[in-house]
Each structure stands twice: as structure tokens, then as C-alpha cells.
């Protein structure tokens, strides 16, 4: 697509939020970044512009303003904060792609706080019934964004959602971020994707992967 898409990243100063923002700033996107800490946000914008003078990026005033200008909204906030952000962007996110990246982990990282018959992404879809919620970037750690090729293999990044056009757009976005995009299925497949990350986190702690790990499907 030649026409530049505007992406609002809400929670841009977090680990994953800033990693996503940095990688997407290399693509044909305009980024509107919103984070809770204004000074960190300005530092991030400066950092992106210094490393790539062609980057089209700026700090946004509030989630609603950023969301209104955006074509795509990335919610890079913890699961627990999604409800509040969803309330703020509900009106402006109508019909737009909203990317859910969160994993609803419990405090001790040994389980999920969501019931087995739902997922963080499906809960977000309930809060934003007229938006196109897409699950993406939940199986990738922040460090993977600087090193998407691990041990010689490009990490896979799984995408789930119900809208064909939206899945296509997010697939391009995930590829721009440096990963190998794989459309896994409908939004309810997010249940599996979120559990996959739970497993990866548990294994990472057990075998000391040092937060640089990812999934790769081997096939012929």
C-alpha cells in the first residue's frame, strides 16, 4: 500500500510498546505514540528520529486523540489496564483495527487470569464491539524486536482475528516489524496463543532463556 497508514501505539513507553514503535518506524507508517510518562515518551520520539531521520513519529496528547487520527490502534498495555483504555478509545476506534498484544498472566506467572473459554483478545472485543480486534505480538518478547532472528531462524509471530482485510493489514505490519507472520485463525485462537506465551515464559524462567526466545514452526 502506498498510502501511509497512521498507527496509534497506546502504552508506547512500556517494554513491548517502545520495541514495536521502534521497529514500525522503519515502515511506511505514521506513528502517534502515547505513554503514561511524558518525559519517557519524548525521549523515545527523539531516539526514533535520531536513528532514522525519515521516521514519521510524534507524541500524542491523549489516547482518544491518537485513536481518532489512527487507522490502526495498538494497545501495548497490560491486560489489567485494557478496560480503562478501551473506554477512552471506544468511540474513535469504531470499525478500526485494534491490536491486542497482552497476555493475561497471573502474578506468579504460573497461570492465566482469564477463564479457559475466553482470552484477553476476546475480552477486548467485547469492550470494543464495533472494532476489528486482532491478536498479534503476544508471543514475542521485547528483546526479540531487536533480534528477530534467533539462532539463525526468524521468529514466527502469530496473528488471530475474524476480519480478512484486517488480518491482511496486520500481516504486513508484523512482517515490517521483522517477524515471520503466520495467521493462526479466528480470534478465539488467541486462547491458544496466550497459553503458548505462558509456556514460553515458564520455560524461559526454568531454563534461563534470558527473555530472548520465540516460537518457530518447523515444516517442509
Amino acid at each position: 500500500m502506498k498510502t501511509k497508514q497512521t498507527i496509534a501505539v497506546i502504552g508506547a513507553t512500556g517494554n513491548i510498546g517502545s520495541a514495536i514503535s521502534k521497529n514500525l518506524s522503519k515502515g511506511n507508517y505514521r506513528l502517534l505514540l502515547k505513554g503514561s510518562k511524558q518525559d519517557e515518551l519524548e525521549t523515545l520520539v527523539k531516539e526514533i528520529k535520531t536513528s532514522n531521520s525519515a521516521a514519521d513519529v510524534e507524541a500524542a496528547v491523549c489516547p482518544a486523540e491518537a485513536g481518532w487520527e489512527a487507522d490502526i490502534i495498538i494497545l501495548a498495555v497490560p491486560f489489567g489496564a485494557e478496560k480503562e483504555v478501551a473506554k477512552k478509545i471506544k468511540e474513535v476506534a469504531n470499525q478500526k483495527i485494534v491490536i491486542s498484544i497482552s497476555n493475561p498472566l497471573n502474578e506468579t506467572y504460573n497461570g492465566l487470569v482469564t477463564a479457559p473459554d475466553t482470552s484477553a483478545a476476546e475480552e477486548l472485543q467485547k469492550l470494543l464491539p464495533n472494532s476489528k480486534v486482532i491478536k498479534a505480538f503476544n508471543t514475542t518478547f521485547a528483546a526479540d524486536f531487536t533480534t528477530p532472528v534467533i539462532d539463525g531462524k526468524q521468529a514466527d509471530a502469530f496473528i488471530a482475528g475474524n476480519d480478512e482485510d484486517a488480518l491482511q493489514i496486520v500481516t504486513e505490519l508484523v512482517a515490517t516489524a521483522g517477524f515471520n507472520p503466520i495467521v493462526a485463525g479466528d480470534l478465539c485462537v488467541s486462547r491458544t496463543l496466550e497459553n503458548m506465551q505462558l509456556l514460553l515464559i515458564q520455560l524461559g524462567m526454568k531454563y534461563n532463556y534470558n527473555w530472548l526466545a520465540g516460537w518457530k514452526i518447523l515444516h517442509h
Partner: peptide, 17 residues
């Protein structure tokens, strides 16, 4: 209303190329 997409565009930005 549920089918409409609100969108802001700034001066000189493209809606379509």
C-alpha cells in the same frame, strides 16, 4: 453509526494515493 469510521486527517496528508 456502528458501521462508520471516524478519522482525522491533517493538512497535506493523503487519504488515498
Amino acid at each position: 453509526k456502528t458501521y462508520l469510521t471516524p478519522k482525522k486527517l491533517r493538512k497535506k496528508q493523503y487519504l488515498l494515493q
